[in-house]
Design a protein around this nucleic acid. Structure first.
Lengths: 183, 183
DNA sequence: TCATAACCGAACATATTGTTCTATATTATA
DNA sequence: TATAATATAGAACAATATGTTCGGTTATGA
């Protein structure tokens, strides 16, 4: 990709996330974005058709490096495949705590619901491949897609709770809480 | 409340829900609403400050009669307080299945996330008073607000799943699934 | 170096928002 | 029923936002 394109794209993403931390998605205008990103109006529309597409692209960009384990990313594959399946979730918590790409900031802002639904959606694909999760005493008689929804929504709900209490609880503790509910 | 106000208010709600079933919240304009509701522009703004307030009011109107048990509604208090605590959830499922006020339609449309977050919020208040839920072997050592979030999000996730499979599963079955996860 | 492609920025038509105004119709109530 | 209060219609309005077009400029990659 052309370096100019990359720069423009990043400038838009930065301006957008900056605005998202301050005001609601609906009240953000294209005018504000291009002013902060310091780019031309036509340039914005050359990159993104609408504000909604911009959001979708941002989510994809943010979460793909967390969820691309299946695609063969070496670093991630190692972690996801070489340890016990349970620790996929622990790894996710730790990954989020590192706050790469300021993901946790976005998940903590007032517009977090926007991202969490995308996040949960990606998470479902990950859970689908963890066969052990569907063989426990508790889940083996339930429809698979029901269990997937259950675990992914429990993870997200735990994450939301943790965001509110980041100062008080360690990753390990939250992970323990999560497991005690899932098991 | 003035009969004229009631009529206008309902006309707006009807037009709004009609639009919500067809297109995304963001793409709905005030112009479309007043055209379908067949009211004057100034009248709309006399009732609702913005589209967001309209949504909030709609949610309140929709869910209050389900969640007003605490306020002393006779019919509901009977059901909520006189049976085993578990059945609060069963009652909710059955209430939803009756589809009063077309709640289930709205929870099934593409904009359902808008309503489900309000729904979950109300649900949390209800759960908070069910002391039994926090005394089980599984939950007694967990923070109370964590358990509340967990149960409410599990209910909503179960509800979402059920909406997708309304034809295939009975209320009783879904309720059983829900319990087997909560317990 | 050179062809290509991205960007600027201004201008533009169009659409949406939110307000203000007067005339009219409906309501509550005395 | 008569009256005062109030909700609505409808049009007009400024202000803002959207999305597109265009010619000129600048950076990129080969």
């Amino acid at each position: 990709m052309d370096r100019r394109q990359r720069k423009t794209r990043n400038a838009i993403f930065d301006a957008f996330t900056q605005l998202l931390s301050k005001k609601s998605f609906n009240s953000i205008t294209v005018g504000e974005i291009i002013e902060i990103a310091d780019i031309g109006r036509a340039t914005f529309y050359a990159h993104f058709e609408t504000k909604d597409f911009l959001l979708k692209e941002l989510c994809r960009e943010l979460f793909c490096h967390i969820f691309d384990a299946k695609e063969g990313n070496i670093g991630h594959r190692h972690i996801f495949e070489c340890e016990a399946p349970d620790s996929v979730f622990l790894h996710l918590f730790m990954h989020l705590q590192k706050n790469d790409n300021h993901i946790l900031d976005l998940l903590s802002c007032n517009n977090n619901e926007l991202f969490l639904s995308y996040f949960q959606n990606e998470l479902e694909h990950l859970i689908e491949d963890q066969n052990e999760l569907f063989e426990s005493e508790k889940t083996k008689n339930l429809p698979k897609d029901f269990v997937i929804k259950h675990i992914s929504s429990t993870f997200v709900s735990t994450l939301k709770w943790w965001i509110k209490h980041k100062q008080e609880y360690s990753v390990q503790t939250v992970y323990t809480y999560f497991l005690s509910i899932i098991k």
